[in-house]
Design a binder for these strands. Structure first.
Lengths: 341, 341
DNA sequence: TACGCCGCTGTAAACGCTTACACCGGGTCA
DNA sequence: TGACCCGGTGTAAGCGTTTACAGCGGCGTA
């Protein structure tokens, strides 16, 4: 083990209290004494012991991030955003994946006691009461793109979500502006909140454009590339064929693209195509995929900032639901691009 | 704050020592007493305080992961692997990015004292002495795909690396087996260790195949897609044109692919193309990119396991350099695929 | 009967730190 | 000259645990 405050005190010929004072820059210390102590610290390569400190100050300078097990690119981007904000404010980030296995999530949650000052939860959905029940009462929590199960007791947590509705709305209107009327949708999982919002956005846009919605044009999907492929095949069989397809996420859009390609239907000439999320792959398929861009890392940063506010102003912090805006990214696949690859 | 061990003891009518004993399953406790304590724990929703525990046991059940700032997909995969192994063994993961700024990395390093039981360092390169100097002497460290600067004092750390040489070797031999003789290489950054190994693998394969290496066929690059594009243009200008191109990473391969496409040179008909890393995008470009697959998450898992071994067997643990094997992934772009998209 | 052992339990020290409080000496003010 | 204040410092309590040690019955054995 490395040196403790006691050894520093000994070496500098002062009491540990004084050492503590210079470390934390609290209370008066004679300039000369301070120098001596600083020198001792330097020589001993002393670093305060985090746990000991936490024990008494009751704060860890660490925030936890809870993720589902299978986190891909989306989550890593979020983490990056979180880490960025965390470092800016001198905090550490403890990450923890979990199977949605109820027992395990409880275990993870409890293991967090005394380790974190706050928690960011990223999960497709989560049981709000279970969360509260297994967490210290006062631990600040912000939900990130996470929908609350059970009594949607709005003010229980801070929350940050993507503007799914707005993004879908904008994209479908764009498609309509390009002259398309028969605009199909490849839906996401039936119970998925993001998917539902995107569906609502799609319908709202049709309404605004004066296009009658048609159930036949709303093809089911589950966010997987494969389901996109199948949806593409079903779309092809439709009579008349849709002029444009909006997939509720990029994976499905790409699956659909491959189905169309397999049938020698050319995008965007024969049918326009667009997705949602703007995953990196979107710009690498041919033609490049138009999509709705989600500022993922920013989600993380925002969450972190919100959390830090809660931690630092425990009392006057008030909970809030935030929505972060999306942006339309027009590339080749919808036929409305300025430039193509 | 939540309940402490004292309150549990009070409620159960025993001393805190006994409570501690049932929590840690150490020492004998009468069955009846244990029940009473368990009940109290349950009612109070008591969870031991991590920091307090760490203070005395001198272990945190947490391992740190140090990453460069700009971590993308590669790093997130590693983290996933690490987290997986960590959870299996009941450990937490503390991640921490850093600018390569020397002062900051030192700060980060020191801040870790008393917070982690071990450290995984992921960084393009790192100053070994600086690392040791700012870390508690005894803290186990494993380097992951990280090359050591300064005196390459082999046994200072555990290390895990990708088999760059073997991967490149295998791919180039595959290209040769397809009948190609003029096989070009798009190199990585001149000082990058991965790039250098891949270069060596390329040359070794040529040698084995009895192909004379030609400096003209070794085009510089820096791992960026853009440099791949430029390399592609240079390749096109060569007389005679190479029959195959092996790029030292996928990004450059894709850049090159786009350059070829722009010049109406068809892959793989006119020239075969292959990359290295097998990033997810590889299978989405047209034609799908042949590549050398790196089991990224496994890197993380391996590192974690190595680290845990070091932590748990402090004394008899001996340091080691491991290499994890790569696998050849043959898709459309090299013209040797079984099936294409 | 006396001794020792063993299962069970409590007491208290220790981990490394922060901080309330007390102390000390010298200067300021009346 | 005495009262007071204040900068600078030390003492010690306490944060929530673990754990060495000791104590205390009851039982088996000599």
């Amino acid at each position: 083990m490395s040196a403790s405050i006691k050894e520093v005190a000994l070496k500098a010929g002062v009491s540990i209290a004084t050492v503590s004072r210079v470390i934390n820059e609290k209370g008066p210390v004679a300039a000369e004494t301070r120098q001596r102590i600083l020198a001792a610290i330097e020589q001993l390569r002393y670093v305060p012991h985090g746990a000991a400190r936490s024990l008494i100050t009751n704060q860890t300078d660490t925030i936890g991030v809870l993720l589902p097990d299978l986190y891909g690119e989306f989550f890593s981007e979020v983490i990056r955003g979180v880490d960025l904000a965390a470092r800016r404010s001198g905090h550490h980030v403890l990450i923890s994946g979990f199977h949605s296995d109820r027992a395990e999530i409880e275990a993870v949650l409890r293991a967090l006691r005394g380790r974190v000052d706050g928690l960011i939860v990223l999960s497709p959905d989560v049981d709000a009461q279970g969360l509260r029940r297994n967490l210290p009462e006062t631990l600040p929590v912000v939900l990130l793109n996470t929908r609350i199960n059970g009594r949607p007791d709005g003010a229980a947590f801070d929350a940050i979500n993507v503007d799914n509705h707005g993004g879908a709305f904008a994209m479908v209107r764009h498609l309509a502006a390009l002259g398309h009327r028969r605009i199909a949708l490849i839906r996401g999982p039936a119970e998925n909140a993001d998917a539902l919002e995107r569906l609502r956005g799609y319908r709202a846009a049709l309404r605004v454009e004066g296009i009658a919605p048609s159930p036949a044009l709303e093809i089911p999907g589950d966010f997987s590339e494969e389901s996109g492929y199948r949806a593409g095949e079903r779309l092809l069989a439709l009579e008349p064929r849709p002029e444009a397809v909006f997939a509720a996420n990029d994976s499905m859009a790409i699956g659909c693209l491959f189905a169309l390609r397999a049938a020698d239907v050319e995008v965007p000439r024969d049918v326009a195509l667009a997705g949602f999320d703007d995953i990196p792959i979107a710009r690498y398929v041919t033609p490049q995929l138009s999509s709705v861009h989600v500022p993922i890392a920013e989600l993380g940063t925002r969450a972190m900032e919100r959390l830090l506010h809660a931690v630092e102003h425990r009392n006057e912090h008030e909970r809030r639901q935030e929505t972060v805006p999306t942006t339309l990214v027009v590339r080749g696949s919808c036929g409305g691009a300025m430039k193509d690859l």
